[in-house]
Every structure is written in C-alpha cells, then in structure tokens.
Computed example of a mutant assay.
Amino acid sequence: MKMLIVYTHPNHQSLSYAFLQEVIRGSGENTAVEEVRVLDLYEEGFNPLLVFNETKRRRDMHKDPELARYRDQLLWADKIVFVYPIWWGRPPAMLMGYIDQMFSSGFAYKETGKMLPEGLLKGKSVVCISSMKGPALYPLFWLNNAHKTLMRRALFSYVGIKQVRFFEFGGMESPRGRHQEKLNKVYQYFKKAN
C-alpha cells in the first residue's frame, strides 16, 4: 500500500503535528505499507487561491501544469490521509483550497449527463484525522455533522472514494483532553491498517 499524507497546520509544535508523527510511526511498523509520502501544505507554500481569467479557465484546471505534481501524488496513492484541525466547524482554508484545485472535473470525476458524475478516484481509501477545541459531540449536535457530511458525501463519494474513516477528536485544548490516549489510537490504527 502506498500512502499519501496531506498535513495542514502551520505550526509544527501543534497537536495536529503530533498526530502526523503517529501516522508516520504506525505506518512505519506496518508491513502492508510500501511507502509513505508527506505533503505539508504550509511548508510547501501551496497556493490555495483559485485564479480564473482569460488564460486560466476553470474547465482546464485538471491539466494545469502547476498542479501536475500534486495530481501525480493523488494518483500514486492507494490511501490518502488528511491531518488537520477543525476551525469554525470545517477544515482550514488552506486544505479547502487544495481540495478545490485537486479534486477537479476531468481529473477526480467526469460528467456523464446523469444526476451524479463518474468518480475517477475509485479504489482509493481515505482517513481524516482532525482535532478541535470544542467538545467531541459539538459537530454532531450543533452542526448536524457538517464536517463529516462535507468530506464523505460532498467530496469523497462524489469522486468515487467509498472507504472513508474519521478520527475526529474534541476537547483538545483541555488538560483533560486525553491527548496521549488519542495519539495512541491513531498510532495503533496505522500500525495495522491495510
């Protein structure tokens, strides 16, 4: 299994970075994992801004040469792991900008004239690891599970990815947040994931 980790947090002293390290550590002990690549969007200086003008059109985004390397990473990966915080009930704008550009028509899906398009990323699996300040049940009861619905239905299902796993941790700024227990849960999952 080839694994791409898309890490989205500007601080390498953050809890998100600690989760990234546990993904790498667990995967390194997993005989099913052939290779792991990490894309750190902030360190990379990824430009999340969409630009459309006379020379750059939305319908051509799937062949934008500036994004070719990122498309190749997604095609290469069997499992895509997203590690990010939840800010204002959703992933950071940096990650949303990556999604807007990478999961484009002609690359991640194609229109068929039917109600739903044909997903072109079939056979891949996704794991989303997110943490937030609010309580763990806040997204479910207050936001109607908007984050998971956005990621699972509006994005991954749309592009053909059916196998999606979430680790959504709340209360992470509390001293009673059981950080080590949650870090270990992620480590154990990736140590055995296939």
Rank of each mutant, 00 (worst) to 15 (best):
M3F: 02
L4S: 03
I5H: 05
P10F: 04
P10C: 03
P10G: 06
N11A: 03
H12Q: 02
H12R: 04
S14V: 07
S14Q: 11
L15R: 10
S16Q: 06
Y17C: 14
F19P: 03
Q21P: 04
V23C: 05
R25E: 04
G26E: 02
S27F: 05
G28R: 06
A32C: 07
E35I: 06
R37D: 09
V38I: 14
D40I: 00
L41G: 00
Y42P: 03
Y42A: 02
Y42R: 03
E44S: 05
F46E: 00
F46Y: 01
N47S: 05
N47H: 09
L49C: 10
L50V: 13
V51D: 12
F52M: 07
N53F: 13
E54V: 02
E54M: 06
R58M: 11
R59T: 14
H62F: 14
D64M: 05
P65E: 14
L67Q: 06
A68T: 13
A68L: 13
Y70T: 08
Y70A: 05
R71T: 01
L74F: 13
L75T: 06
D78R: 08
D78T: 10
D78K: 09
I80T: 06
V81F: 01
V81H: 07
F82N: 02
P85E: 04
W87Q: 07
W88A: 12
P91D: 02
M94V: 04
G97K: 07
I99A: 04
D100P: 07
Q101G: 12
F103M: 06
F103I: 08
G106R: 09
F107S: 08
F107T: 03
A108V: 14
E111H: 09
M115D: 10
L120Q: 02
K122Q: 13
V126G: 03
V126Q: 04
I129P: 10
S131I: 01
M132I: 09
K133M: 10
K133S: 12
G134W: 12
P135E: 15
A136H: 14
A136P: 11
A136R: 15
F141V: 14
L143W: 15
L143A: 11
N144K: 05
N145C: 13
N145V: 07
H147A: 13
H147G: 12
K148W: 12
T149K: 12
L150M: 15
A154L: 04
A154M: 07
F156Y: 15
F156S: 11
Y158L: 08
Y158E: 06
K162P: 06
K162S: 14
E168N: 15
F169Q: 13
F169S: 05
M172G: 06
P175H: 00
R178H: 08
R178I: 01
Q180F: 12
K182N: 07
L183A: 05
V186R: 15
Y187P: 13
